[in-house]
Design a protein around this nucleic acid. Structure first.
Lengths: 352, 352
DNA sequence: TTCATGAATGTAAACGGTTACATTTGTGAA
DNA sequence: TTCACAAATGTAACCGTTTACATTCATGAA
């Protein structure tokens, strides 16, 4: 239905080659011819078909983006960065979320490959054991991982040093006087980075001579933070005075849950997140967190991929700097143990 | 580089038509031939090119998605719904965010049209005056709006009744005893729905005999809620005891800012948001809000569009039900006027 | 055995661009 | 004017599918 290059050519009384040359500035065409062709293009509302072009050039100027979920703004931020960079270089994005489902991962990548995307940017469940990535290698389709951990196979990744960051989180909390640390994390099976953050956190705690932090693995997708924390803060004794959470969304939920349990953040319990979501700076208390440059990671991954596509630059793993944002949700350890809060009304129903 | 249908055909000793028939189940092929072809397909790792197919069938089984921003989870939720529905029906998504920029809007849609997407789902700045939508009409490319307001031109839209919802927000606050209402909103020029919510809110307030609510228009993208609210709550007198915010992200920021200004939510000021973001239920206090079914809106828009693409079902405007979630951030109006808080330490620097 | 018939398969022309190569046109020098 | 050469334009093959139509094959009836 839409006008084709042949329609334009015949209306302008030239050959398709001339039209193509004008449209793509890929050759010289005399001014008067150009004007005639231009007029024809406008008269017909000609819009060159990317499909035809893709077929003949065997590249699509499109990228596939595969992330676990859009519900976590941290991925949305990265996609925003990818989008910016891609747009700036005139690439189009094919997009999908896998909901942390490996089968979906596979299906999606198959679809993207059928569409002949020029490259992919993805976050997978486990880069060291990923059929999807193996497939991409076999097919020779370039890709860059984001958020995933630097991995055994040397797969190109844009990330932050999650282990170091986890360690720094522990150090920061220790510095505030905390000794009984804890961590709340989503399922490690779905997130190699949460695992790395935990490792770093444990290392940091041990190095500081703290008792091994308690690690609470919770269902992130369908979360009831209050239920998860109640056993911890319901009983007298050794509950952590500071909690490190594997991401900001979780941290926000933990702050909320502690509040509902009658505990004050940070006076009774300190909470530190991971991601650096913008909203964290707006909350009260503001959220202490490890900031990773999500948007920038998206940008960097895309830039690298596009460079690779237009030169033969090899893809590499890049570690971007993270930083500690010491928000109000992390404060000095209380002198009196938080366990004395045991009698607060929030716990009157504890035995039910 | 990848194997083509001809490669498969010649390896299997059949014609391309036979391969095509097998791959698409579009005709009969004898069992033994099928087996031979199947073997060839696997041997070569043949993956039919969507590009070739698109060209010959002149449809792409892809949809374009254009939203203002991914940074606001409400859009991310809708995209999640779109993604689910599209995947289920084997469509692929091309995606981009416009950052509320009309020029971007135009550029994006041009690109999507070049790729010959079969249809579009979008949220635009102003549906009544949108060159982009005019273009789509001219080109005869089907589209469905989401979040946008039902509009003069009868453009198909999936949305909620923002006016009614705004009115209900006012009524709910009045019912809690509030009379001095206020609203905090993002730029109305970028959001027809914020405008509708305001209209409903004002109507509701008037109907209840309240003085006209104060409406504060703030820069949502680059927000400093504390600065925006300080003049209101810094001075003695008629500050609203309840604030309705045009979206949840804003509401969360407002709750935080009020806290930093030394005011308690909801004891001193009630806050109600709009969207029903999941995280709102985790916060402390939980966020009172008008819930719109974002994911479902995405699903519904996509379902409608795909139905239209495979039948000749006309596109229509659908209004999905919203609901009031009365979270803890909205509470009964305090008996003593909040203005007595004037002397709290939070305001000691007021004159600086 | 011969035929009619339907099933299975093959042929070749689209689809809408790009581009190597061929051809025509225009220019300035001899 | 003629010629050499560059500039401008044209021709047609090709990219990887689908599909209308043609052809071949197998089968059972006459």
């Amino acid at each position: 239905m839409p006008a084709t290059i042949r329609d334009v050519a015949s209306l302008a009384g030239v050959s398709v080659a001339t039209v193509s040359r004008l449209v793509n500035r890929s050759g010289k065409v005399r001014d008067d011819t150009a004007a005639r062709v231009q007029a024809a293009i406008e008269a017909l509302g000609f819009r060159p078909s990317a499909v035809g072009r893709n077929l003949s050039t065997s590249q699509t100027r499109s990228l596939g983006v595969v992330i676990p979920s859009l519900t976590n703004p941290v991925f949305a931020d990265a996609v925003a960065g990818i989008n910016e960079e891609a747009r700036a270089r005139d690439y189009t994005l094919m997009f999908t979320a896998t909901n942390y489902d490996r089968a979906e991962e596979q299906g999606i990548v198959d679809a993207f490959l059928a569409y002949r995307v020029d490259g992919l940017i993805l976050t997978v469940a486990d880069p060291d054991n990923s059929p999807v990535l193996d497939l991409l290698e076999r097919e020779g389709v370039p890709y860059v991982l984001i958020y995933n951990q630097p991995n055994a196979r040397g797969r190109p990744t844009v990330t932050v040093d999650n282990v170091a960051a986890g360690r720094e989180a522990a150090e920061a909390l220790v510095k505030l006087g905390h000794r009984r640390l804890g961590m709340v994390a989503g399922r490690f099976s779905a997130s190699d980075r949460a695992l790395a953050r935990r490792d770093g956190f444990l290392t940091g705690a041990r190095a500081a001579g703290c008792p091994d932090p308690l690690v609470l693995e919770v269902d992130f997708v369908d979360l009831n933070a209050e239920e998860a924390l109640r056993p911890l803060y319901g009983r007298r004794g050794e509950a952590p005075s500071a909690l490190f959470c594997s991401n900001d969304l979780l941290a926000m939920a933990v702050v909320g849950a502690l509040g509902r349990l009658g505990l004050n953040v940070p006076d009774d319990v300190s909470v530190m997140g991971f991601d650096g979501l913008a909203i964290g700076t707006q909350l009260h208390p503001t959220l202490a967190t490890i900031v990773q440059p999500s948007r920038e990671m998206g940008r960097a991954a895309t830039a690298q991929l596009l460079d690779r596509l237009s030169g033969e630059v090899p893809l590499r793993t890049v570690t971007l700097p993270h930083s500690l944002r010491l928000g109000e949700s992390a404060g000095p350890a209380a002198k009196p143990s938080p366990t004395e809060l045991r009698d607060s009304p929030a716990f009157e129903n504890e035995e039910t």
